[in-house]
Design a protein around this nucleic acid. Structure first.
Lengths: 195, 195
DNA sequence: TCGCCGCCTTGACCTGGGTCAACCCGAGGG
DNA sequence: CCCTCGGGTTGACCCAGGTCAAGGCGGCGA
């Protein structure tokens, strides 16, 4: 077993036999990415996803008008991939880019589907993954509905303290749904008021 | 079998044995709700959910400041319930209210969990439900990130044509994340421009 | 050492949407 | 028949955030 810690984390979620995990490990491959390198480019088939071993990524949606908005940041222990597109079996509309030199553990969707046919634990895990990501999205939806940009900023750092210093400010702005100028002003206003 | 159409719809999603569906039907109960009646009140345990047979509902989150924001509208064939809270086994923070006289088919969470232990089809179905609701949330997140209020309005009616005339305007506004005054102005502006 | 580049800040100005308050209008009840 | 009430509209005013444009500044390659 190459990744016993990972196995423990997953086994805590759903009962996952060690031999099933070993099968998955055998199908997975490590990939190293340089800063700015893409794990997934828009237009590519969304037939693979990965677990971040080291580093930080941003998932970027490029709209028709060319504006970038950020769907998520992902760091160690989190999954990267065009999940929505994968579920719909469509090509990715999302770029997933390393913000630092990174290492990930890559799985092919097809391989996972194969594993699912062999043992129910994988379906249970897939369910957990779906439910977890649903909760993430619902939380963000609520923030957009109820909170000002400044309140969203405060929440962002509460929820992602591990990203401090690792993501450029303009990307935080794009995550919050505002421009980098607006974010800069919010921050300087807060600096003056609080100290 | 009381609801053969429902069964067909579900069976198209995951392979669902008829006898499992009959077990579920036996555990479910129909409930009739008057206009304005709550299927679920905030603070109540989120131990039940339902399928809408007839009518329209709104899921409302009441924030600390007393402002209402609308998480979703649900009509015939859709599920109502405090899904996020259910997944976290917390009391509901959401009110679910009938906007018209309605009929629903109620399931208890515990009963479903029991069914899950008996046959894998229920877990598969739960996975589908989670994935589907994830997609809904992700779509809405994207709309908040990339679209103006006016564009969100247009999308809303594209995505929910069946709600025309069944939901009050103020609720549409609360769904879009704006005030009823703002929505009113957007509509009158559009009336003038297009015709 | 210099100059460029990536990232952030600041300023001037504009605009979408919030807030408060008045008003309109159609449906039901007394 | 009028009154009320719920839901929608309109106006005046304000403010958060967008847009465009001009710097600032630290780091790195030539």
């Amino acid at each position: 077993m190459r990744f016993p810690k990972l196995f423990e984390r997953l086994a805590a979620q759903v009962s996952l036999p060690a031999e099933e995990w070993e099968k998955a490990e055998a199908l997975a491959s490590e990939q190293v990415l340089a800063r700015r390198e893409l794990f997934l480019q828009p237009g590519a088939p969304s037939d693979r996803f990965a677990l971040v071993l080291q580093g930080v990524f941003r998932a970027v949606r490029v709209s028709a008008s060319g504006a970038e908005s950020i769907k998520a940041f992902r760091a160690e222990g989190e999954l990267i991939g065009a999940y929505a597109e994968m579920l719909q079996r469509r090509p990715s509309m999302t770029a997933i880019e390393a913000l630092e030199p990174s290492r990930v553990l890559v799985f092919r969707t097809r391989d996972l589907e194969e594993l699912e046919r062999g043992h129910v634990c994988w379906e249970r895990l897939a369910r957990r993954v779906a439910e977890y990501h649903f909760l993430l999205k619902e939380r963000r939806e609520q923030e957009f509905l109820d909170l000002t940009a400044e309140e969203r900023l405060v929440r962002f750092w509460e929820e992602h303290p591990h990203l401090k210093g690792r993501v450029p400010q303009r990307d935080v702005a794009a995550y919050l749904g505002i421009t980098e100028e607006a974010l800069s002003r919010i921050m300087s206003r807060r600096r003056k008021q609080r100290g």
